[in-house]
Write a protein that binds this DNA or RNA. Structure first.
Lengths: 222, 222
DNA sequence: GACCGACTGTTCTCTAGCTAACAGACTGCA
DNA sequence: TGCAGTCTGTTAGCTAGAGAACAGTCGGTC
C-alpha cells in the first residue's frame, strides 16, 4: 500500500486466459528468457503485451548505452503500442524481460475493441494509467529535488512494496537486481550506489549478497 | 503534433457546458485570477477540476519553496482527485492558475459515474492519460540524460507545440513565462536559464522581452 | 580445482550546475 | 517623476556525483 493509498493490485486487469482469448482471438503466448528484448525504442510496433508471469523492464537507452529504467511491470500490467488510432507508430521505450516471463501478445485493434466494449476492463485500465502517472510524477520529483542517497532509499521502499516478500531476516526483494540495474532504476552511477549500499549494510538497515537484497529494517530507510 | 504522432488535441474531452451539467449535476464554475492556488500538495481533495479557459500549472514544491512544474494544462484537460474508490485521499500536486482561468469543479463520484457510463468520454480519458504518461517519461529521460541546455530547447519546442501561436516575427508563445517559471519547468536554476536564453537570443534563434518569448527559428532549436 | 566472466568495492579526477550575491532594467502605481 | 517591487544579467565559489580505472570476489563449468 503506497502512502497515497494507491495499491498496485489495482493495476491488474484480472482476466483469465480464456477471457483474453475470447476477447482477443489473435492472442499469442510468448515465453521469454531473461534479458530478451521485446521491443526496442524506435521500433514500429502495433501490438500490446500483457505480462502474465514474471517481470518486464521498461527503459530508455541513450547513445552511450546507459539505461534508465522507467518502470518494472508485474503480472497483469500491459505495455507496448499506444492506444491511439493511428497505426505504425514508433515506440518510445525499450522493453526487456527480467527473468523468465510469459506474455500475451495482442494486436492493438483487438485491445482497443476490448477497452471500448468492456466497461470494467476500461475502468481498470484507466485506474492503472492514473497510478502510473502518479509513480512517474513522484520519480520526477525525486530526480529534481533529492540526492542519490534518498532516491536509492525511496526506490528500495518502492521495490519492497511492489516486488517484496517476507524472508526469515525481514523483507526480501523477490526481484534479483545487480548494482548496475539498481543504479539504472535510481538514475545514478554504479559506484555511488555501491558505496551507499555498503553504508546501509554496515548500519544494519539491509543485507545483500550479489543480486539478492534483503531489507532488515524497512522503517530505517526513513 | 508531437514527433510520435500524439497530438495534444486528443487530451480534450470535448463536452459543452450543457453536457457537463447534465452528467454532473453538482458541477460548479470557478473563475480564478492569476496565481490562485486551486489545491495544495498534501490537501485532502475529493473533486475533479476541468480546465475550461486559461492554463493551470501542476507542480511540486520542496521545503525550500523551490518548485518543479510537472505539467501545464490547457482547455479540456482535467486534474484533481484521483479516480480510485477510496475517498479523502491526499493530493500529490499543487495546482495553480496561470493567468485568469475558468474551471469546472466536479465531485469525484460524479466524474466516476460519467467515466463508467459514457464510453466515449472514458476512451478519451484513457487516451489523455496515455499521452500524459508519454510526456512524463520523456521528461524523465531528459532529466536523466540531457544537460540544462538541451532540456531548455526541448521545453521551448514543447511549449511552442502546445501553447504556441504565430506572430509577425515567427512563433510566439501565448503563455507568458518569467525566467524563474521557465527554470521551474526545465528543472534548472534561474541563472543558467538566463545565460542560455541570452545565448540563444544572440544567436538569433529567439527573442524575448521580459515574460514574452518569441521563437524566430524553431528548427535551430535542434 | 583452475579458469573465465560477471559482479562488487574503492579511489581519483573533473565538471555541470547550484547557491549566493548584487547591480541594472523595466513596470506600474501614487 | 519617483519609488517599490519584480524581473533580468552576470560573476564567484563550491559540491554532488559522473566517469574511468583497477583490484578483489564470487560462482559456474569443464
Amino acid at each position: 500500500m503506497s502512502p497515497h493509498g494507491l495499491s498496485s493490485s489495482h493495476c491488474c486487469v484480472q482476466l483469465s486466459e480464456g477471457d483474453w482469448r475470447r476477447h482477443c482471438p489473435s492472442l499469442t503466448v510468448l515465453r521469454l528468457s531473461d534479458k530478451t528484448v521485446i521491443h526496442h525504442q524506435g521500433d514500429v510496433c502495433d501490438d500490446v503485451f500483457v505480462v502474465v508471469k514474471g517481470r518486464v523492464k521498461l527503459l530508455r537507452l541513450n547513445r552511450d548505452g546507459d539505461q534508465f529504467v522507467m518502470a518494472v511491470l508485474t503480472e497483469g500490467q500491459w505495455f507496448g503500442a499506444a492506444l491511439t488510432d493511428r497505426s505504425h507508430m514508433t515506440i518510445a521505450d525499450t522493453a526487456e524481460a527480467k527473468g523468465r516471463t510469459v506474455l500475451y501478445r495482442i494486436p492493438r485493434k483487438e485491445m482497443r475493441t476490448l477497452l471500448t466494449s468492456d466497461r470494467d476492463v476500461a475502468w481498470h485500465a484507466l485506474e492503472a494509467q492514473v497510478i502510473e502517472i502518479h509513480a512517474l510524477r513522484r520519480k520526477l520529483e525525486l530526480m529534481r529535488f533529492h540526492d542519490v542517497r534518498s532516491r536509492l532509499t525511496e526506490t528500495l521502499r518502492d521495490l519492497a512494496r511492489t516486488h517484496g516478500g517476507h524472508c526469515r531476516h525481514g523483507f526480501e526483494l523477490d526481484i534479483k537486481l545487480t548494482q548496475q540495474e539498481l543504479a539504472d532504476l535510481v538514475g545514478a552511477s554504479r559506484p555511488v550506489v555501491s558505496t551507499l549500499l555498503n553504508d546501509l549494510k554496515s548500519r544494519g538497515v539491509l543485507d545483500y549478497h550479489r543480486t539478492l537484497i534483503c531489507i532488515q529494517n524497512l522503517a530505517a530507510l526513513e
